[in-house]
Nucleic acid binder design. Structure first.
Lengths: 356, 356
DNA sequence: TGACATAATTGGAACGTTCCAAATATTTAT
DNA sequence: ATAAATATTTGGAACGTTCCAATTATGTCA
């Protein structure tokens, strides 16, 4: 269609000024006379000018591309979708746009998309690293002065900022809640023991148990894949135990759903005959029957916060690696046997304050 | 950190060739000698060169930016999340990256993000337009030779490609299925009557009813907001009818869930006492109790297909506005009373072939 | 060996912007 | 009215790549 795009020079000619002046108004410089600014703007509108960020960026030596990269491992999981929405909100209102990619837990894919994003000149990256991500993987980025914020899963050795939810406090409050309901034998179900998140949640479980004056028994923690199927498997083992537990905190909501399935298969009604608490508060948690009592981590909030952190670092020019642990709250619904709650996503909620 | 980025010239010097040669190997040209190619590649790796697409793009006169824009109205809705994943899959393997933005149904937001994407030089756009989007809104884009593919909702007057699911055939098959189960009075519940999607689905309902040899009664179609609450409202009205229906097809899954709620509030068990069928097959549909019989639209497939279409147009250089209607299939689960199905997302499924 | 084809390489110029130093226009103060 | 200050505007020269036309190296054929 249009042969040649409208450039700053076209505007300059049409407005009777120099390209430099046009550039100045583009940048909102206070140096230009109000009259000329108005005229230039008018001409721009008239000719349908569109700013070429690529060119601008080229000159400005990488400083500010107005693009941030976001990579998650499973957009299909509503947890990450919400996270992305949170990022988008703050990033968008700062005039940035987000490159969003999905790795499906594939580390090769992750490398590819990060490389691609880099070629496109992102000025920052928010990433929920795929399973086997090496801490050194983001070294080149930070070496190039591109701030990186790791979310959800933390990356031990890497010198990047990170923001994770307070797994420990969350699990602890879940256990305390169950203990408060009179449960004496509370199991910890699901999750792979070789991950940092598992360690944190287990630690929280342990502190909760001890804080409630109960004994910590190793046989009450049974690991399994962090999936629905894993939950079925885990509850099966737990129920076969000598002194069987009467309640369980689960590694995440998927496991919790599986636990409910397994319970029902044994003619036990979750909530009534056995209390179960999840972790994450995925959307299905409130619609399920029974509605799942769970620890809500507010993924959208994490996204927003991560984005703010990233923007701060982008603007500061230098990236101080900083770590924040976000608050988490227990949402009491039905599956713990504490009774129904009226308002959907609310209910009795225990907010857990967080350190630095 | 690193003062100055590594450029093609640095590579050229280090490898003892000219920048032109380096450029050639960058583009995989067959003109360069294998030996030099290898050496250049080695040097690039050694110096940690990263390609600057912005610069390249500048020279190549807008032709190919390797960026596609994707805008959806609600990423939080798993329907759109899956769509985005579908787009990402094909786009990624074609070496593109996607700008993904969320409009939350705000048309201003939509305008902003599209403008921003344009400044960044996207070479194509996939958009699920916000509610009140004007057909003329994408005119400038196509005028600039940037192909646009509209998905999910179609945009009547716009001369852009679009891809929507076969609402009519889907609804028709749902009705036929219910009729096959012996239902004589089947209601059409939920949705706003002023939208194209509603019209299509209603038309499908009507054809289904007639194809089954039943009479079409206007009082059996009750509109309402396309939400869970709307479903409750609609089933309330439907049940108050003189000759009350024994089954219903719903505008979408949210409505269907609401219908189930409303049924239960009246001590009627969905599936057993009243058959309900949804539309969309959102993830919750299979996990719900009873599992929802619904028309599956495969959002990820739409995403993939839309992306393919877009890439084709980008490569072709010229955009023939083309319209495709994607196949849809009825997934029979429990809520229609046809009995339980063993495998999760499968069950008896009726694939509906689609025209052009 | 010379003439010619072919393979491989190469130096600018260009893409659309921003930056800089310098030029010009306008005020202000004397 | 003139110097000094201030407000505005302006030509290049970059930024890192690709393209083009032209050059040089290598091979082939008689």
């Amino acid at each position: 269609m249009t042969k040649t795009r409208v450039t700053v020079i076209d505007i300059a000619n049409a407005a009777g000024v120099s390209k430099s002046t046009v550039s100045l108004v583009l940048q909102g410089s206070s140096l230009v006379n109000e009259g000329t600014r108005a005229k230039v703007n008018a001409v721009m509108r008239e000719l349908g000018y569109v700013y070429n960020r690529g060119a601008a960026n080229l000159r400005q030596a990488g400083a500010k591309s107005k693009i941030v990269g976001v990579v998650v491992n499973d957009l299909t999981n509503s947890f990450f979708a919400e996270l992305a929405v949170g990022v988008d909100m703050v990033v968008q209102s700062a005039g940035f746009v987000q490159f969003l990619s999905n790795t499906s837990e594939s580390i090769d894919r992750q490398r590819e998309v990060v490389a691609s994003m880099r070629e496109h000149g992102i000025s920052g990256l928010i990433v929920s690293p795929a399973r086997a991500t090496d801490a050194a993987d983001f070294k080149p980025l930070v070496a190039a002065g591109i701030p990186v914020v790791v979310v959800v899963r933390n990356l031990p050795g890497a010198k990047v900022s990170s923001i994770v939810s307070d797994n420990q406090a969350g699990m602890m409050s879940a256990v305390k809640h169950l203990a408060g309901l009179g449960h004496k034998r509370i199991a910890f179900l699901g999750g792979f023991p070789d991950t940092a998140v598992f360690d944190d949640r287990l630690a929280g479980y342990r502190s909760g148990v001890e804080a409630a004056g109960l004994d910590y028994h190793e046989d009450l923690v049974v690991s399994s894949p962090p999936s629905r199927a894993g939950g079925v498997e885990a509850i099966g083992k737990a129920i076969a135990l000598g002194r069987r537990p009467t309640a369980a905190v689960c590694f995440n909501d998927a496991v919790a759903f599986g636990v409910c399935d397994g319970l029902r298969a044994r003619r036990l009604e979750p909530g009534a005959d056995f209390a179960v608490v999840g972790f994450d508060d995925v959307i299905e948690a409130q619609a399920a029957v029974p509605a799942l009592t769970t620890v809500s981590v507010d993924p959208q909030g994490i996204g927003r916060r991560g984005a703010q952190m990233l923007l701060k670092q982008i603007n500061a020019g230098k990236a101080e690696a900083e770590t924040v642990v976000t608050a988490v709250r227990l949402v009491v619904r039905e599956s713990c046997g504490a009774g129904k709650t009226a308002p959907a996503r609310t209910g009795k909620s225990v907010k857990i304050e967080t350190g630095r």
